[in-house]
Design a binder for these strands. Structure first.
Length: 461
RNA sequence: GGCGACGUGGCCAAGUUGGUAAGGCAAGGGUCUGCAAAACCCUGAUCACGGGUUCGAGUCCCGUCGUCGCCUCCA
């Protein structure tokens, strides 16, 4: 039985979908006004892992992730650079999708954009006005928070408390300082759409509500995003959607923790960021995924040289389990290996069922790796290793790890075989200097040589 | 100030309904090896602190300290 931590109730709950076998899932994507950083990657990876596991468990997952492609920051950045805001957004969307692919993140079922949801957004705003949940004010439209008795239920806030906080600027346009914009009147030169309230554009929160309704229906199963979105973004989404439809908006709210760089949340404003582009220029996508898997998705995740190195080494270790039998393997007893493969799978599923406990699940995978390596050392053949390695492949695949061994061009292989053979001959004659020379030179070319009891094997990397 | 999360060996981190602590990285020792690499074996924590409940608590309750997030845009 899968259990999921629900931000709404602050508890792990049994996971049950609205419709059997189908999961309707929405994750808030980025506002595309700049290059995405590894914090965005973390969020995308977390929900990719959730999605993959749900699919592995047999669900048909309708996975929607939006792009906010029109907003203040995009307009400001476009003006700064003297480019068209739509072109700017388009470019960053393309970059982001490329990064997702590099990180082995499955494509969403749908990637709606604010600019392509204008009709549904306006319908919703109009409906909220009609029901008295919103009001127009000089071309802006605001949501009337005091009209929503449930306002604050996700973030655990009370309107009175928030107003006491004194951080909220009083705005003459609004009835209440906590009211938020559904529609913003356009200033001269800004991108704008015609509407019943004059030319303008949507507020940030309304697009997600409209997309959810349009893409997935009135009530969805899972709504995800970074925990920095809980308030106000998700709170406001709930308010808009539930006041508009009168139905529960989302059953399970999942939030990932923030990536920490030097002890602080990675963000533009702090300026402590590493872009996905930068990260991927130095590491393969699996490394970032490994980093995420080794932690708890709801907790802050430390992004340090040390944690990256540990993730990299851990990956190597898992890959070691997938390597072929030793040359001339004579065979070995594999009862223990078979048993370990089975118990690993059971334990893995249990861990993942417990709110996607990837760190625990990884721990069990390492146990299987050790069992495979032990069997190999004992002389197990490829045929004997294969079932356990298949299990390892299957389960790491659920986590989205690629575990690709580095490859050279196929043409080189037979020459390397030849060199290794020559070296073996040299070793027989105890020509150590020559043997080491061959090994060192091959290493420079990215080929690792390993001398075993019964022969020598080599691999790229 | 308000709301929330968290504090387990050097680092990351797991820990089902409470019964004496997975795993990874790093470190040290060992096996294997001509040497090396990889792999394998061995070594280390009483769980922030102080109370309480209990036969028994990392695991429940209270308090203290600390860290992080949100309260403005944010994955």
């Amino acid at each position: 039985m899968l259990r999921v931590y629900n931000t709404l109730t602050r508890k792990k709950e049994a996971f049950q979908t609205i419709e059997p076998g189908i999961v309707r899932m929405y994750v808030c994507g980025p506002t595309v006004y700049d290059k995405a950083h590894v914090g965005h990657a973390m969020s995308a990876l977390v929900f990719d892992i959730v999605r993959r596991y749900l699919e592995y468990r047999g669900y048909d997952v309708r996975f929607v992730m939006n792009f906010t492609d029109v907003d203040d920051k995009i307009i400001a950045r476009a003006n700064e650079k003297g480019v068209d805001p739509f072109d700017l957004a388009e470019g960053y969307i393309r970059d982001f999708e490329e990064h997702l692919a590099d990180l082995n993140i499955l494509p969403a079922t749908s990637n709606p954009r604010a600019t392509q949801t204008m009709e549904q957004i306006q319908d919703m705003v109009r409906g909220l006005i009609e029901k008295g949940y919103a009001y127009e004010s000089n071309g802006d439209v605001y949501f009337r928070v005091t009209k929503d008795a449930d306002y604050g239920k996700l973030s655990g806030r009370k309107l009175e408390d928030m107003q006491a906080g004194a951080r909220i600027a009083v705005d003459e346009q609004k009835e209440n300082p906590m009211d938020f914009a559904l529609w913003k009147a356009a200033k001269p030169g800004e991108p704008a759409w015609d509407s019943p309230w004059g030319k303008g554009r949507p507020g940030w929160h309304i697009e997600c509500s409209a997309m959810n309704l349009h893409e997935l229906g009135e009530t969805i199963d899972i709504h995800g995003g970074g925990n920095d979105l809980i308030f106000p973004h998700h709170e406001n989404e709930i308010a808009q959607s539930e006041c508009y439809t009168g139905k529960l908006f989302a059953r399970y709210w999942m939030h990932n923790g923030m990536l920490q760089l030097s002890g602080e949340k990675m963000s533009k404003s702090v300026g402590n960021l590493v872009t996905i582009e930068e990260f991927l220029s130095e590491h393969e996508g699996d490394v970032m995924r490994m980093l995420v898997l080794n932690g708890n998705y709801r907790s802050p995740l430390a992004f340090t040289d040390e944690s990256i190195a540990a993730a990299e080494r851990g990956l190597e270790r898992i890959k070691s389990g997938l390597r072929p039998a030793a040359p001339n393997a004579a065979g070995a007893a594999t009862d223990a290996l078979t048993a370990q493969a089975e118990s690993t799978k059971t334990a893995f599923l249990e861990a993942m069922d417990d709110d996607f406990n990837t760190a625990g699940a990884l721990g069990y995978l390492f146990e299987l790796v050790r069992a495979i390596n032990t069997a190999r050392d004992a002389g197990a053949t490829d045929e004997q290793l294969q079932p356990a390695q298949d299990t390892l492949r299957e389960l790491t695949g659920v986590l989205g790890l690629r575990l690709e061994e580095k490859q050279g061009s196929g043409d080189a292989d037979k020459f390397i075989d030849l060199l290794v053979e020559v070296r073996s001959e040299a070793r027989k004659q105890k020509l150590w200097a020559l043997s080491d020379l061959i090994r060192d030179k091959l290493a420079e070319l990215g080929v690792t040589i390993e001398d075993n009891k019964d022969g020598t094997s080599w691999r790229w990397g």
